[in-house]
C-alpha cells in the first residue's frame, strides 16, 4: 500500500542519507547492486516484525503477534502512513548497525537496539519520523481493540446487537481473544450493570429527573 512512489534516484539518495561521511554515501549511490536486494523485501513482513517489537508477546502476556492469525498486519497496512520504499529503507538501514542483516533478520534484542538508535535520531531524522508514524498506526489499531473493535451492521449501517440484548450494549470485546483493551485493562463501552453503578453514584451528587 504505497503512500507515494519514490523514483530510483530519490531512493538512492535516501540510501546514502543515513550514512556518516560523504565517501560512504557516494559508495552507496555508486554501487547499484545494493538496491535490487532491498526492494525484494515483503513490506508486510517488515510491518509484522516492527509490530512484534512495538507490542511484544510473552507467555501469558499477549501482544501484536497474538493477533497475526486475525490479519492485524493487513489492518495496520490499510491507510498506512509510509510508502513501501520508506519501509524498505527502514528495514535495510539495520545493516548499518548489524552488517549483512536487515531488520527482519535480526533477533529481538538487536531489533530493540535498532529501535533505540532510530528513535534517538542516530539513523537520521527521516527514519525516525518513519518509525514514529508506524508506531502511531500500530498502537492505534491494537489499542482500538482490533479485531474486536466493531460490530456487524445491517444494510442501513445499524449495528446488529447480540440476540436477547435489551439495553443496546455495543461492546464487541470478548473473553475468547486477548486484545488491546484486555492488555490495558479497559472494559470498553459500558455494560448495563456498569451504567447502573455509575448512575447510582451520580444520582447522589448531580442528577435531575
Amino acid at each position: 500500500m504505497s503512500k507515494k512512489k519514490v523514483s530510483r534516484r530519490d531512493f538512492l539518495k535516501k540510501t546514502g542519507s543515513g550514512a556518516t561521511g560523504t565517501a560512504v554515501a557516494l559508495a552507496s549511490i555508486q554501487t547499484p547492486q545494493a538496491v535490487p536486494a532491498a526492494l525484494d523485501v515483503d513490506p508486510a513482513a517488515v510491518v509484522s516484525a516492527l509490530g512484534d517489537v512495538l507490542i511484544p508477546s510473552d507467555p501469558g502476556d499477549p501482544g501484536y503477534r497474538t493477533l497475526e492469525p486475525y490479519n492485524i498486519t493487513a489492518e495496520v497496512m490499510k491507510d498506512f502512513p509510509v510508502s513501501d520504499e520508506e519501509l524498505v529503507l527502514l528495514n535495510s538501514q539495520a545493516g548499518e548497525l548489524f552488517p549483512g542483516k536487515n531488520f527482519v533478520q535480526l533477533k529481538e534484542r538487536d531489533r530493540e537496539s535498532y529501535f533505540d538508535s532510530v528513535f534517538a535520531g542516530e539513523r537520521g531524522e527521516e527514519l525516525r519520523r518513519t518509525l514514529g508514524r508506524i508506531r502511531q498506526r500500530v498502537f492505534r489499531v491494537f489499542y482500538k481493540n482490533y479485531p474486536e473493535h466493531a460490530l456487524p451492521r445491517d444494510g442501513q449501517g445499524v449495528p446488529i446487537l447480540p440476540p436477547g440484548d435489551t439495553h443496546q450494549i455495543t461492546n464487541p470485546n470478548t473473553k475468547q481473544l486477548a486484545t488491546g483493551w484486555d492488555v490495558s485493562g479497559f472494559m470498553g463501552p459500558l455494560t448495563w450493570e456498569e451504567e447502573q453503578r455509575r448512575r447510582s453514584i451520580v444520582e447522589k451528587i448531580d442528577w435531575i429527573e
Partner: peptide, 25 residues
C-alpha cells in the same frame, strides 16, 4: 481511551515498558 493513552507523550516508546504503562494506567 487506550488508543489515546498509548500515544501519550510520556508513554514509553515501545515494548514491555510501554505495555506496563498501559496496564498500570
Amino acid at each position: 481511551l487506550p488508543s489515546q493513552s498509548a500515544l501519550n507523550t510520556f508513554a514509553p516508546l515501545y515494548g514491555r515498558e510501554h505495555k506496563k504503562f498501559m496496564r498500570e494506567k
